[in-house]
Design a protein around this nucleic acid. Structure first.
Lengths: 225, 225
DNA sequence: TGTACATCAGTGAACGCGCGTTCACTGATGTAC
DNA sequence: TGTACATCAGTGAACGCGCGTTCACTGATGTAC
């Protein structure tokens, strides 16, 4: 492949920095230095820091959306003799976790979702809605079919419980990585983290799938209230 | 009561601002203006913005810890003919949610926990460990007794699932409030929010208790893996 | 083929602003002798 | 009781710094005639 253009190098550098430190904590001087590019090039190519951020997000949320939609759709065509609800939950949770922990792209997307959750600032959150919204719709549609007698409110709460969990578990891993570098005397580790990222992901996916299925069962089988 | 001192007014103003906007987004000029106090008074009384933040946190996390420890302890002395696990979960989740949504104190504490989760910056997170750590220990000890044959790893994951959920639900409400003011055309509302904060809290506590109990059942009754 | 002009990627230096912080100061209250 | 000094809460103005952004510019490539 040919060597990346200035614009691409800026996007690459910005992605890593934003993913690890968040929007405000990164200065465009850092980004320019990391990309080995002139400071003014950022404004030349992106007309400002904000817009660079949006472009970085667009570039990392789009593949995430495709992966998730594909994973959800794959459940549809699976053989009928397996419990579809479990497959659906595992596909949704697994794809999210793996995407978030396997690449800076994924980490950034997650960081953003988490960030927008606690402070929905700039136009960035419109992007989140735009790119992640369809995934949510698709997932909800499948859940509705698999849990036909469950009212909308319960379904929304179930999804809230799932999203809350995986954001927490993914952020937990992310912090673990960050803390390793700083090596202060304090330990963040509430949970043991398993043996490497592969091990951690497998544990989390398995736990979340079982826990969530149990939760759904408890929510849907009782009387409505 | 006597009129609050300059120091107290600074703490009060800083608490509200930090709780709603986070640490970096608030300038000490805003705080001083809101407290109707001279700018330099912040450094006179607190030797810097960072330390003011820490003092605000200390003031709001300490009562939170006491409430939570009391709620957990209350389960211990309850009559024996009720399911203790459900009481414990409900007490933990309910106290957290109610504290977080009923006062700026609580909201700030939650915001911090969430913030430290995604970016464990300054010494503030040491405070979180110090003040919230004992709550976690107490909760875990009770869980261990109620689920005697469950290994430590599973218990840690269960707590992760609980904490992830309530941070998500509390932040969701918080964002809802923030968005109301801005009134952009976009809607944040993935979930319907119920009729006021009382209604929302009741719904969330009920949902989370049932969902979590179901999840715990599913995790603990199957074979180990 | 040669000249004139337009477009475009990239550059170096500076600008203006808001930030947290500092400093010399005031005026009131308390304390020692 | 009176004087001298120390302590303390609070003040107004300025400082230095890093930030995102702007501006005039260069040099290379493409296009028209």
């Amino acid at each position: 492949m040919s060597e990346p253009t200035t614009k691409e190098r800026l996007l690459d550098a910005a992605e890593v920095l934003f993913a690890h430190q968040g929007y405000e904590a990164v200065s465009i001087r850092e980004i320019a230095a990391e990309a080995d590019v002139n400071l003014a090039a950022i404004n030349y190519h992106f007309q400002g820091k904000e817009n660079l951020y949006v472009e970085v997000l667009r570039r990392c949320l789009a593949p995430k959306r495709e992966k998730l939609l594909a994973a959800i759709a794959a459940v549809e065509v699976a053989t009928d003799d397996k419990p579809k609800l479990e497959m659906l939950i595992r596909a949704f949770v697994g794809t999210h976790i793996e995407d978030a922990l396997s690449s800076p792209h994924g980490l950034l997307g997650l960081h953003l979702m988490s960030r927008e959750m606690s402070e929905p600032r700039h136009g960035a959150y419109v992007l989140v809605k735009e790119l992640i919204g369809p995934v949510r719709e698709s997932f909800m549609a499948h859940i509705r079919i698999l849990l036909p007698d469950t009212d909308e409110k319960k379904i929304q709460m179930i999804i809230g419980s799932i999203v809350g969990q995986f954001i927490y578990y993914a952020m937990y891993w992310h912090n673990h990585l960050n803390m390793l570098g700083k090596s202060e005397e304090v330990e963040l580790a509430f949970m043991s983290l398993g043996d490497g990222v592969e091990d951690y992901m497998a544990n989390v996916i398995d736990h979340m799938t079982r826990f969530t299925l149990g939760g759904i069962k408890a929510i849907t089988e009782g009387g409505d209230a």
